Simulated assay, not measured.
Amino acid sequence: MTLTERFQAFVCEGDSITCEVAGFEITARIVRDDCGDAPDERQDGFWPSLYKDSAGFIGAGPNHRARFDAAQARAEAIMEAWRKDEWFYCGIVLSIAREGIVLDAHAASLLGIEANYPDSANSHLDSVANELLPEALDTGRAAIQRLCTAVTTDEARA
């Protein structure tokens, strides 16, 4: 069971893909992550290092200085692209509906995902949405069960 649609290679906040699974309509949408931390604040080791005890240690061996310089240039380019809002952190939020009735607008989600990251085709967004699909289905089934129980209880009272 997977989402059959795919997110585009360039995405914007609000973009979505949908599918139908087991009678449920599932929509995966992109929301902007509300944490404003920069990439180097979010990720230990974002900046490369020549020191072995540092999270960004590039490793010992031949050409370590050239590898460091390349990694430093890459990190600087990623930061500059983030500052220019060319890429952003987002969340994937799945909603679930049955016969057009939304059972849960936030059935499953994961935030802190890179969108439009340099040299990325955003295929990881599809992977995240598919990983969240079982949780969304469980949420939808639980919502249906609660509704059925409520209807049965109300009928018994009548």
Rank of each mutant, 00 (worst) to 15 (best):
T2F: 14
L3D: 02
R6A: 02
Q8M: 15
A9I: 15
F10P: 00
F10S: 02
V11G: 07
E13C: 02
E13R: 04
D15A: 07
I17Y: 00
G23R: 13
E25I: 01
E25P: 02
T27V: 01
R29L: 04
I30M: 05
I30A: 03
V31G: 01
V31M: 10
R32H: 11
R32C: 13
D33I: 06
D34F: 11
D34E: 10
G36W: 11
G36D: 10
G36P: 12
D37P: 05
A38W: 03
E41Y: 01
G45Y: 02
W47Y: 10
L50P: 09
L50F: 09
L50T: 11
Y51G: 03
Y51M: 03
S54Q: 12
S54D: 15
G56L: 07
G56A: 11
F57L: 09
G59W: 05
G59N: 15
A60R: 03
H64P: 02
R65T: 10
R65E: 14
R67Q: 01
D69P: 09
D69L: 06
A70E: 06
A71I: 11
A71W: 14
Q72P: 05
Q72G: 05
E76F: 06
E76K: 08
A77D: 11
I78A: 06
E80W: 14
E80T: 13
A81I: 12
W82V: 04
R83C: 10
K84Y: 08
K84D: 10
D85T: 15
D85W: 14
E86L: 03
Y89C: 07
Y89H: 06
G91P: 15
V93W: 00
L94R: 01
S95E: 00
S95D: 06
E99D: 08
G100H: 00
G100V: 00
G100L: 01
G100M: 01
I101N: 08
V102C: 10
V102A: 04
V102K: 04
L103M: 09
A105R: 00
A105G: 09
A107M: 06
A107W: 01
A108L: 04
A108Q: 01
S109M: 08
S109K: 02
L110V: 01
L111N: 09
L111D: 04
L111Y: 10
E114F: 04
N116S: 05
N116C: 01
Y117S: 01
Y117W: 03
P118F: 06
D119V: 03
D119C: 07
A121N: 04
A121S: 03
A121M: 02
N122L: 05
N122S: 04
S123P: 13
S123N: 12
H124S: 13
H124T: 14
H124L: 14
H124P: 11
D126Q: 02
V128Q: 04
A129R: 00
A129S: 03
N130V: 13
E131T: 09
L133E: 05
E135I: 09
E135F: 08
A136I: 04
L137V: 05
D138A: 04
D138L: 03
G140Y: 05
G140F: 00
G140Q: 00
R141L: 12
A142M: 05
A143C: 07
A143R: 13
A143Q: 02
A143N: 02
I144W: 07
Q145R: 13
Q145L: 10
R146L: 14
R146N: 15
R146G: 15
L147N: 12
L147I: 13
T149I: 05
T152Q: 07
T153W: 13
D154Q: 14
E155G: 14
E155P: 11
A156S: 03
A156K: 12
